[in-house]
Design a protein around this nucleic acid. Structure first.
Length: 722
DNA sequence: GACCTGCTGCGGCGTG
């Protein structure tokens, strides 16, 4: 039977109404997979490739044709990582469900309470919900889970790659297990994504206990043409990047004007700088404004204005951060520009997927890299052109179709604390045994063994922490502090957010900035693509009043250090000793790459991994990504060295250490125990870390950011190449 | 050396 014939009548009618001649190959495959068996599925296809329909046309058909007495509740559940995405998908699915008696219910923080209340009283049809809102249902309506989801056929997880091994992804996977435990039956899982690395690992993430049964449906490559350019720029080298910024802005202005584009500028401060330059250029040329900034600190109103403008058909370029990376509907984009080296190939691929979506149109990626002009006392980091070489490395990996796989070893203890509190709240109390089974044996925390789990429970129940307490019968209950935490609405999200000021002009909020910016009345600011002067500060309300001004500098937004995968660094080292010049480099980029290779050889890294670059100062070519590099750095610091991190290299100052560097490396290679100075290692980076003991924090860090057990291997590899 | 994501229940007030 053809895929079309397998679908329910109303769905066939909808397809004809759309004017589709036929289903795409992967959509037909998905229809067969859903209708013929009950396996979990991963549907991998390009952005806007019709994944939503591929999953929902057959799933809705099944709901319509099932004549089994329903257990009640929502028939299908869709999980989306963004409110905007849920709103988009609600509209699309309402189109399909228009003629059939199946409600489509969006459920997130912006949905009015009365709509949620009505859906809760009469749960049926399609529920579209965020992980956090689902969490809130478990915490506040624990006793109703069976009634709400007892008859649910499948859970569809959109943008699966963002909900994979992030803290948020672990939370969602825990909620899915808890859903199955509470309803007493398995619920089919369907993951949708355009950007997945290792498919076997991804399957194991979707269904840990039965990864081999997860079926993969992949769209063939669209075959769209890819146009690629990497432009190199050399700055003054004395810290004045103004001229280079103007050059890049000038090139963007010339090439992007008149069409729709996305410029990923790297961070919020750079977004403000480039948006300001481009606005000034438009104004002095007496041209209508086409360039607008877009990032998370800007007010919702301003962001929606830019998104609407992109959809409107008038030429618009958004200068943005990763806010415009995910699948919300912003219409067709001609070109994607990337300023500076990105942090992951996955993000680069996701960004590139934003352009060339219309048939016959090429995908266009323009990359801009700035390197410092060299002088006799330039640093090794500048000489090696690390930014340019990393960008080339990542572009090569992108072209080969590689992207970062999930990290399966992490313990995720912060999120485990959250889920322990959530289950206790859901059920009004839980035994240690039940928590361990739900979370560590059947749930996603499978790398947490019984010893660690008990240590964690004891820590949470200790006098200082007091999040939980034990009743005389052994049941674990929320302690006073735990209850307070769980009762507040800020509990539902597992990620933390910094404190911020709100910027207000004439009673209207224009956005937020972190509280660690030093601002006094009179300070001039660039923000939201405009210039402002601070009039008043209200410390307690965290409000800053501003008025328009003629000049200013952008605020600092801060951020976490990046996480670079080993494969990217290994490819960088291959590039240093290769002669091949990639065709997508412009003249300056070719010169910079050639220079980098000459310096690599001149410094001696072709022959040895350790080069002495000054009195007591050495550069080690570790050839490691951030995890390996950080591990070796902490070990060297514990031996009295001062260390600085670079991509694939460490800069080591041995003037204050007792041991010679090579002897220290030899000790590491022989497996000598290392006493890391954990107190100075800043181990609290997740929301529930403040409730963990130093020992548990160490364990958590060693499972994700550091790998102490790999130290001998890292040191040996360096010593083998001297 | 970075980015992003999310959020309930209820009390008080104004309006029809």
């Amino acid at each position: 039977m053809s895929a079309f014939d397998q679908l329910a009548r109303p769905i066939q009618k909808w397809i004809r109404g759309q004017g589709w001649k036929e289903l795409r190959k992967f959509q037909s495959d998905a229809v067969h997979a859903v209708m013929d068996a009950s396996n979990d599925l991963i549907i991998a296809a390009a952005t806007a490739g019709g994944k939503t329909e591929a999953a929902f046309l057959p799933l809705i058909s099944q709901v319509l044709e099932s004549d089994v007495a329903k257990a009640g509740g929502f028939d299908l559940v869709y999980i989306g990582p963004l409110k905007a995405l849920i709103n988009d998908q609600t509209r699309r699915l309402e189109g399909i469900c228009d003629s059939i008696d199946l409600p489509v219910v969006p459920w997130h923080g912006d949905i009015p309470a009365n709509i949620k209340e009505r859906a809760r009283r009469n749960p049926r049809g399609l529920l579209l919900i965020t992980p956090e809102s689902l969490e809130s249902l478990f915490v506040r309506r624990g006793m109703e889970i069976q009634r709400l989801f007892g008859g649910t056929n499948a859970v569809v997880i959109d943008e699966l790659h963002t909900l994979l091994d992030s803290e948020r992804g672990i939370q969602l996977r825990s909620l899915l297990t808890r859903l199955e435990l509470a309803t007493g039956h398995g619920i089919r899982r369907v993951g949708l994504s355009a950007t997945l690395g290792d498919m076997e690992l991804t399957k194991a993430y979707l269904r840990p206990e039965d990864a081999s049964a997860v079926k993969l449906i992949k769209a063939e490559h669209s075959g769209a043409e890819l146009r690629l350019q990497l432009r190199g720029y050399v700055s003054g080298g004395d810290g004045d990047d103004g001229a280079t910024t103007r050059q890049i802005a000038g090139h963007l202005f010339e090439k992007l004007r008149g069409s729709n584009n996305l410029v990923f500028a790297g961070n919020r401060q750079q977004v403000e700088i480039y948006a300001d330059r481009l606005r000034v250029m438009s104004e002095s040329a007496h041209l209508p404004q086409e360039f607008f900034p877009h990032h998370a600190s800007l007010s919702k109103g301003h962001r929606e204005f830019v998104e609407d403008k992109l959809k409107s058909g008038n030429p618009t370029t958004a200068v943005c951060t990763s806010t415009l990376e995910l699948g919300i509907d912003i219409g067709d984009v001609t070109c994607v520009a990337q300023i500076g080296a990105p942090f992951s190939v996955a993000a680069l691929r996701q960004r590139l997927g934003r352009s060339g979506r219309r048939a016959g149109q090429p995908a266009i990626l323009r990359q801009y890299v700035i390197e410092a002009g060299l002088s006799s006392n330039s640093s090794i980091a500048d000489r090696l052109r690390l930014g340019l070489v990393r960008t080339v490395s990542m572009t090569e990996l992108l072209l080969e179709g590689w992207c970062e796989p999930p990290k399966p070893h992490s313990l995720h203890l912060s999120t485990l604390v959250h889920q322990i509190l959530s289950i206790i709240a859901e059920r009004g109390g839980a035994s240690a045994q039940r928590l361990f089974v739900s979370l560590c044996q059947r749930g996603p925390f499978r790398t947490v063994d019984q010893t660690i789990f008990l240590a964690l429970l004891r820590n949470l129940g200790s006098h200082d922490v007091a999040l939980i307490e034990q009743a005389p019968d052994g049941m674990l209950l929320l302690g006073e502090k735990g209850e307070k935490l769980v009762e507040h609405y800020s509990f539902y999200a597992v990620f933390s957010t910094p404190e911020e000021y709100r910027l207000v002009c004439d009673g209207k909020e224009i956005g937020t900035i972190p509280v660690d910016n030093i601002l006094v009345p009179g300070t001039l600011l660039i923000f939201s693509g405009r210039r402002w002067q601070v009039i008043e500060l209200h410390e307690t309300e965290k409000i800053i009043l501003v008025k328009p001004a003629e000049a200013g500098i952008p605020p600092k937004f801060g951020g976490d250090p990046g996480d670079i995968h080993d494969c990217i660094i290994q490819r960088m080292f291959m590039l240093y000793v290769d002669d091949n010049i990639p065709v997508y480099l412009d003249k300056t980029a070719v010169e910079l790459l050639t220079e980098a290779r000459a310096q690599f050889e001149h410094l001696g890294f072709e022959r040895t991994s350790v080069v002495e670059t000054g009195e007591g100062i050495s550069w080690i070519a570790t050839r490691q990504g951030s995890v390996g590099n950080l591990t070796l750095m902490l070990a060297l610091q514990s031996a009295g060295f001062k260390v600085q991190l670079h991509d694939g290299f460490l800069e080591v100052d041995g003037r204050k250490s007792e041991l010679p560097l090579l002897q220290a490396l030899q000790n590491f290679a022989e497996g000598e125990a290392v006493t890391v100075d954990w107190d100075n290692a800043n181990l609290m980076f997740e929301k529930f870390h403040p409730y963990l003991s130093t020992q548990l924090l160490e364990l958590d860090a060693c499972s994700s950011r550091i790998e102490i057990e790999r130290l001998p291997q890292i040191a040996n590899a360096i010593l083998a190449n001297l």
